[in-house]
Nucleic acid binder design. Sequence first.
RNA 1: GCCGCGUUCGUCUAAGGGCUAGGACACCACCCUUUCACGGUGGUGAUACGGGUUCGAAUCCCGUACGCGGUACCA
Length: 508
Amino acid sequence: MTEKKVRVRFAPSPTGGLHLGGVRTVLYNYLFAKQHGGDFILRIEDTDQSRYVPGAEEYIFETLKWCGLEPDESTQHGGSFGPYRQSERKESYRRYAEELVAKGVAYYAFDTAEELDAMRNRLRTAENPSPQYDRTVRTQMRNSLTLSKEEVESLLQQGTAHVVRIKMPEEETVSFTDMIRGEVSFDTSVVDDKVLLKADGMPTYHLAVVVDDFLMQITHAFRGEEWLPSAPVHVLLWRHLFGEDKMPLWAHLPLILGPSGKLSKRDGAKYGFPVFAMNWKDPKTGELTEGFRERGFLPEAFINMLAVLGWNDGTEQEVFTKDELVQKFSVERVHSGGAKFDFEKAKWFNHEWIKKLPATAYSQKVKSIFEEKGLAIQDDAYLEKILELVKDRCTLLPDFWEHSSFFFRAPKTIDFAPVMAKWNSDKKAFFTALGHPLRSVSDWKAATLEALFKNLAEGAGIKPGELQLPMRLMLVGGKFGPPVFDIAEILGKEETVNRIEAALEQLP
RNA sequence: GCCGCGUUCGUCUAAGGGCUAGGACACCACCCUUUCACGGUGGUGAUACGGGUUCGAAUCCCGUACGCGGUACCA
């Protein structure tokens, strides 16, 4: 049995940032391709020139790079099925549109935008709020179905602006098998005559996706559920152009929902969570949409979270590496219902990955966060040792600041409130006297310090526990952080003693 | 309106004729820790509704409701 090599594609239009759903589509494409030893292609769908946004294409590539989901073929990676940007393939679509007209399954339409508006206004009723250009309406419009052959010839000769529309069959059931939903059917009488080729000579998505998937030999096509209603158009185009048997296997992915409906940028701003993979600044409006990367997510956690939003491997495992996902992913196990995005769970995944990965995996990112806050890090090894010690307490990368900046700078202000109620002269005396024995410790290790501290406390007749919290406050400034003697060990003898002495001056 | 796709704890989901409906996030309690976490134990909490089919239904069929998507010379 000879299997065709698996080839999948992700085909975004460069109109802005890439959101969760987009990245998940990329992920599933990637996982499927890699699992089958196939190729993952990135094709830029920029057939609507009016919506083109500068920078969006670069943004997409940077996102894929950050996520570790790099294409095998694209405008940037090359490949032998180019060009990978549809605007550069413009010339190749016209002949397919003409072929469809010649076969009688598509036609020229000369209606202007005004005429279409007029038609919709005329037909719009409460019962039918969105009149379609369908089998009934097409008999009343200016197209090659209603005009005489001579008139059409003449209009074409004069270069009259026109589009090519598909002629949907009167009454026919078009069905296909979706990898996730099984058999899906549509009655062609309720699907409109979609435009295939626009007046500017560019194809619409409908024509372009079919032609390019054929030319690029795509075997499996993943896309969002919002495309399901236009699937019959695509099936028909495949049938007339290349044969339905050549059509890729479709998988319509469930949508990722926000708190109210389809997830949007607005939801992010409103509820305070990122929606895009990385920060995106709209070049026209200047509006900034926050990204998961800048919020402090690890790419490992980001794709893990996305992978299990609508998919599971049938076991109770939830944390997966990319390699495990490549191995275990299966389209059949993708849930068919939409999934509401839960930011709390997303944070949990990040926390898991921060704990799981060695600090070296993200120390450079933390370092730049620190540097932005004005703290220069000289010693990477020292930084990593600290990150390793506090990582259990950090959910997002910026949390490391709160949990470890005190290792680098003595606290500016100390909140003594938690100990003031029980503070007394005996305790003050204990700490005042503590400097000397500490200075003479030769083996500056947490365990040694703890033993010494407890001995001294007992000698002074005070419970060690009563003294640990004040000690912590003096060293870190608040009620948080790793075990206090671990902190002292890392801080070193000089700094530890200095902080105790400085703090004592603020206490009665 | 019409068409399509959906519907199990608040959220993500498991269980595809036989179960005390399982797990995870979140939440609560307790343990560990004289900080905060991590970790551990336990708890609250779901099959939208109505009909069938069947000895038996979350699971199959029909209907209703609800949700989402589509209904552009946008993708």
